[in-house]
């Protein structure tokens, strides 16, 4: 079972990162994703499928600075 932001989430197993983001309600233009501690370039979101050993960290950015 893949981990998303530290929590087990079976709903994203087999999804690409892009599909997982959509399922979880993230806007892909406003996030940065780390897979197993490595940054994933946005261009690869639709290529890489999540498996049960993966840990995905999604940082959702908000406006203001």
């Amino acid at each position: 079972m893949a981990q998303v932001n530290g929590k087990t989430d079976t709903s994203v197993d087999g999804c690409t990162i892009g599909a997982a983001l959509e399922r979880l309600g993230f806007d892909r233009a406003r996030v940065a994703c780390e897979l197993n501690g490595e940054i994933v370039p946005r261009a690869e979101y639709d290529e890489r499928a999540l498996d049960e050993h993966d840990a995905l960290e999604v940082v959702r950015f908000v406006g203001g600075g």
């Binding site: 233009a29 406003r30 996030v31 940065a32 940054i39 370039p41 946005r42 940082v59 950015f61 908000v62 406006g63 203001g64 600075g65």
Partner: peptide, 12 residues
């Protein structure tokens, strides 16, 4: 930055 998309893009 102040813009959320610009933040995400630069961090990546």
């Amino acid at each position: 930055f102040d813009d959320a998309q610009a933040k995400a893009t630069l961090v990546e």
